[in-house]
């Protein structure tokens, strides 16, 4: 499989605080990667560097052959092909569900209004929320909001999806629906990088699990190995706490 994302020697400092200390990662097309690790380990910062929501202090990120860390990179264009789903959903509260999904394709001229709406309805059906198309975000439960957020990210036809703890802000009974949508996405062959605390989901869906601690990749491999037979003492101690 061709390489979709290539990350080399990523460093990120916030003042004196070194959050990333030289992380590298290759992601193949269609691969599903779960990043796990204690809070404050740098997982989210790492993810946010991939679509340049954070500017790395040092290192390079290449997505689909585009060097996103280049100063002159057309970030808007590259970001169109990278969907992102946030922990806090970040739906636009002043727009209906349908408009939340169509605004980016229409405003970036990726699609005309008619096509964007047709596509949005298709995506809403896919996440099981077609009947909520005219609702506003405040009328939806957290789980529904997150599914709309996933549909919104998919509306730009991304080649890569980033998930930043997509179920961490949800009530437990809502988590399943969101994970189900993500599972289907993975089965459809989407390239996905997921920061998650859902170890059961990571074990089941991930092609590769990466354990991050203190801004470094400590251990990685297929879930059966990382979860079943972890090698590094820090991985063992972390998994003991969360499993």
């Amino acid at each position: 499989m061709p390489i979709k994302v290539e990350i080399r020697n990523l460093h990120k400092h916030f003042g004196k605080n070194e959050v990333l200390r030289g992380m590298s990662l290759d992601v193949s097309e269609g691969e599903v990667i779960c990043l796990i690790g204690p809070s404050g380990s740098g997982k989210s910062t790492f993810l946010r560097c991939i679509n340049s929501l954070e500017q790395p202090t040092q290192g390079t990120v290449t997505v689909d052959g585009h060097l996103i860390t280049d100063k002159h990179a057309n970030l808007d264009k590259i970001r169109e092909s990278i969907g992102m789903v946030f922990q806090q959903f970040n739906l636009f509260p002043h727009l209906s569900v349908l408009k939340n999904i169509t605004i980016a394709p229409i405003q970036t001229r990726y699609m005309n209004k008619e096509d964007a709406e047709k596509n949005a309805l298709k995506l809403l059906a896919r996440v099981g929320l077609l009947e909520k198309k005219d609702a506003y975000p405040a009328n939806l439960s957290g789980g529904q909001q997150q599914r709309v957020a996933i549909a919104r990210a998919l509306a730009m036809g991304p080649a890569l999806m980033l998930f930043d703890e997509p179920t961490s802000a949800l009530d437990p009974e809502m988590v399943g629906d969101v994970l189900e949508v993500m599972r289907e996405l993975a089965n459809d062959g989407m390239t996905m990088i997921i920061v998650t605390h859902e170890m059961g989901f990571a074990r089941e869906v991930a092609d590769r699990v990466i354990f991050i601690d203190e801004g470094l990749v400590v251990e990685q491999g297929p879930p059966s190995e990382v979860f079943g037979n972890p090698q590094n003492p820090r991985t063992i101690s972390f998994l003991n706490k969360v499993l």
Binding site: N51, L53, G83, A104, T108
Partner: peptide
């Protein structure tokens, strides 16, 4: 909100 909008390519 800004992050979500920018991440969509706006």
């Amino acid at each position: 909100q800004m992050e979500a909008a920018r991440s969509l390519g706006m």
